[in-house]
């Protein structure tokens, strides 16, 4: 964020030891990517998947009303997920970083622990909790708080819950990393110079932890554009997200060229978003005397 002069370029010489890595990268990342881009210009074929007929029809189809709505919905879901995880994750990371070293490590361990379990299994856990005869409803019924089971599964709320649940650790860990690096005497200096605690936070802590916030937002926003199984499992497929659309094109419509085109569109979309976001946060330090 600050204008630090670039360190002089280190000499680049490719060591033979990295050649296998380059081969793997080219074979498994670059080539498939070229293939995906390539088939976006081809037509679908019922028998062989694709024909060798070159066309731009797939790109024209992107802008159909249905697709645009899916894009808009996905965008709203991704933004909401990002904002929600940020609102929960920032305070969480902030206070975690201010605990003693021992407590901190323990909390971070707790956050990371669920990653040892497959995310589909964890989401199924939520279904058990949320379903009509699930733990939450049974509990509330037993306590007499409700008279009939709440419909809390298979709706947008359950889907958002799943999204936030799945992506929150990414937000927490990236913000935590930057809060942990904070020099707290800066806050004392801010207080000494006349800032109330919240003003010191806004003027010093927040700008200095912005890199963590940006990283967290990117880490949450990008996957939430493409996650389809959460919408399927918890949202009851009520909202069609970009991820669902792509999956459907490949598996149900068997329209590989269209699926590939949607994938590329999603990539481009998130890429543009990241660039815009970077630009915005780079100017965050402005304000006050220039």
């Amino acid at each position: 964020m600050t204008a630090v002069p670039e360190t002089k370029k280190t000499e680049r010489r490719i060591s033979p030891a990295v050649i296998p890595m380059y081969i793997v990268t080219v074979l498994f990342v670059a080539l498939p990517m070229v293939y995906v881009i390539g088939i976006t210009f081809l037509m679908k074929d019922e028998v062989f998947g694709i024909t060798n007929q070159v066309t731009l029809k797939n790109y024209a189809d992107l802008f159909s009303a249905v697709n645009l709505k899916v894009f808009a919905d996905s965008f709203v879901v991704a933004i909401s997920t990002t904002v929600l995880t940020l609102l929960i994750g920032y305070p969480f990371a902030y206070f975690t970083a201010r605990f003693s070293q021992k407590t901190r490590s323990f909390i971070i361990l707790l956050i990371m622990a669920p990653f040892w379990i497959n995310s589909l299994l964890r989401l199924n856990g939520w279904i058990i909790l949320l379903k009509a005869n699930g733990a939450i409803n049974e509990g509330l019924l037993a306590l007499g708080i409700i008279s009939e089971p709440l419909k809390i599964l298979y709706n947008n709320g359950a889907m958002m819950l799943g999204m936030v649940y799945a992506l929150l650790p990414f937000m927490i860990t990236s913000i935590y990393n930057s809060v942990e690096k904070m020099d707290w005497t800066l806050i004392e200096a801010a207080r000494d110079l006349g800032s109330k605690p919240f003003s010191a936070f806004l003027r010093v802590t927040l700008p200095l932890t912005m890199p963590g916030v940006v990283a967290g937002c990117v880490l949450v926003f990008v996957p939430s554009m493409g996650l389809f199984f959460i919408s399927d499992l918890l949202g009851g497929s009520k909202v069609l997200l970009l991820g669902n659309l792509i999956k459907n094109e490949f598996y149900q419509a068997r329209n590989w060229p269209m699926g590939a085109t949607l994938s590329i569109a999603m990539l481009a979309f998130t890429f543009v978003f990241i660039i815009i976001y970077k630009k915005v946060t780079d100017d965050k330090t402005a304000g006050g005397l220039k």
Binding site: M1, T2, D183, T185, L186, E188, A189, A190, L193, G194, S195, R203, V204, P207, L208, T285, G288, L289
Partner: peptide, 16 residues
């Protein structure tokens, strides 16, 4: 404890 994200002027003008 200079604020690393502010230039000299903004640091000095902080309280102002």
């Amino acid at each position: 404890a200079l604020f690393p994200h502010m230039n000299v002027q903004k640091n000095i003008a902080y309280s102002l």
